[in-house]
């Protein structure tokens, strides 16, 4: 069973004159162990796609299945629970709680959800991301890239089955960006997650198993990039 499946999903913002078709009816699925890239220019509907996939908004038409459950039939309370248990978000803008130290960002997650990473796994993740020394710091004292890496660690920490990342490498230098991608790729394989990365950076697609392009709300698989190198 696919971790994420979108059936005939479309999204239209506004009505009448102001109507914008942000997503044309699409079919999309992501399986366990798949790292998928969605590439498109600004305003093409990438964030719309990702927020619908993550149950943050309802599509105008179609159904969104996460591990077999149709999100469009659930109320916000139940969708929130699914987000908490199944989905890890890495968002375009850094999303740390300003008054919690890096360490406490993780403790907060321990308070709202069970079966997060254990201490060893977390320490390893933090050192892989190069943020182990930052544990006592507040977000305000971190650089943009450090914040982004903490956000990535947070998303992975809850052991989600679906990882949704909106421009996760936007504020990183290319060395770090590649490192982050290899961590995402590694986590995806090892923990059998489905990971979707929205980006406009073509260099990152080497790490991905599948690549889609999105232009004016139209999602199309990029042929010939069913990369064999990730298979090995």
């Amino acid at each position: 069973m696919a971790v994420l499946e979108l059936l005939h999903v479309s999204k239209i913002y506004g009505k009448g004159h102001t109507e914008v078709t942000a997503l044309k009816p699409i079919r999309f699925s992501a399986d366990k162990g798949e790292l998928i890239a969605v590439i498109g220019p600004s305003g093409s509907g990438k964030s719309t796609f990702l927020t619908i996939a993550g149950g943050l908004q309802k599509p105008t038409g179609g159904s969104v299945f996460i591990n077999g459950r149709d999100l469009t039939r659930l109320n916000e309370k139940k969708r929130a629970l699914i987000r908490l248990r199944e989905i890890g978000f890495i968002l375009q803008s850094s999303h740390l709680v300003p008054y919690l130290t890096v360490d406490n960002q993780f403790r907060l997650l321990d308070r709202v959800k069970k079966r997060n990473m254990n201490k060893d796994e977390r320490e390893k993740l933090l050192s892989d991301l190069g943020i182990r020394k930052l544990k006592k710091k507040y977000p305000a004292d971190l650089s943009g890239g450090e914040k982004q890496r903490v956000a990535i660690a947070k998303a992975l920490y809850t052991n989600p089955s679906l990882l949704l990342a909106d421009e996760p490498t936007a504020s990183l230098d290319s060395g770090r960006a590649f490192e982050v991608m290899s961590i995402l790729s590694h986590e995806t394989k090892e923990k059998n997650k489905a990971t979707i990365v929205v980006t406009h950076d073509n260099r990152l697609i080497h790490y991905c198993d599948k690549v889609y392009t999105i232009v004016d709300g139209e999602l199309t698989p990029l042929s010939g990039t069913d990369s064999a190198d990730a298979e090995t």
Partner: peptide
């Protein structure tokens, strides 16, 4: 915005 982000992560309004 902080609360919104926490809600996006699935933390409930009740919490």
């Amino acid at each position: 915005s902080i609360f919104g982000i926490l809600k996006a992560q699935g933390i409930s309004s009740g919490f």
